[in-house]
């Protein structure tokens, strides 16, 4: 499947474009930890035209203090997915209306899906 690499600065504009073209259905959004950088993946689909393939966007941000703009004002269907990435990867989404943990307890410390997060960091010996 073809990914399109999008620089952070152009993300909002590119998504807006695709929305206008009809790719209004949020399929999935997640992050991949590459060590020094985090790759944010967005998959959008046009339900009215099954013949069109999904648009897969890839945004690289630094894994040190990762932030990027939230897409929820444009796509409300990403509200939980962004919270999930915040919860498990520690990515801050600017402009998200309710950015708090989704799956882990509110007072949990750490972001488990990061590669450097192991059982020992979580406090469990082994």
């Amino acid at each position: 499947m073809k990914k399109e690499v999008v620089p952070v600065g152009e993300l909002l504009e590119r998504v807006q474009d695709y929305l206008e073209q009809g790719y209004t259905f949020p399929v999935v959004h997640t992050a991949v930890d590459h060590g020094e950088s985090l790759e944010l993946i967005y998959v959008l689909r046009d339900l009215e035209n099954p013949g069109r393939e999904e648009r897969i966007l890839s945004v690289q941000i630094s894994s040190d203090n990762p932030t990027l703009p939230s897409l929820t004002p444009l796509i409300p269907g990403l509200i939980f997915q962004e919270r999930e990435v915040y919860d498990l990867f520690g990515v801050t989404y600017q402009g998200h209306p309710d950015l708090r943990r989704l799956l882990l307890p509110d007072d949990f410390s750490g972001h488990p899906l990061r590669k450097h997060y192991t059982a020992t960091e979580g406090g469990i010996v082994g």
Binding site: P26, V28, T30, I41, I79, F80
Partner: peptide, 28 residues
């Protein structure tokens, strides 16, 4: 729509496996 976004890196382990749960989206 129950989906899996799978990232491989040449090993037997997945580099990243994201599950797209329909119930989570429906709950939004």
């Amino acid at each position: 729509e129950l989906g899996v976004y799978l990232v491989g890196d040449g090993t037997a382990h997945a580099k990243r496996m994201k599950i797209r749960p329909p119930s989570l989206f429906n709950l939004q």
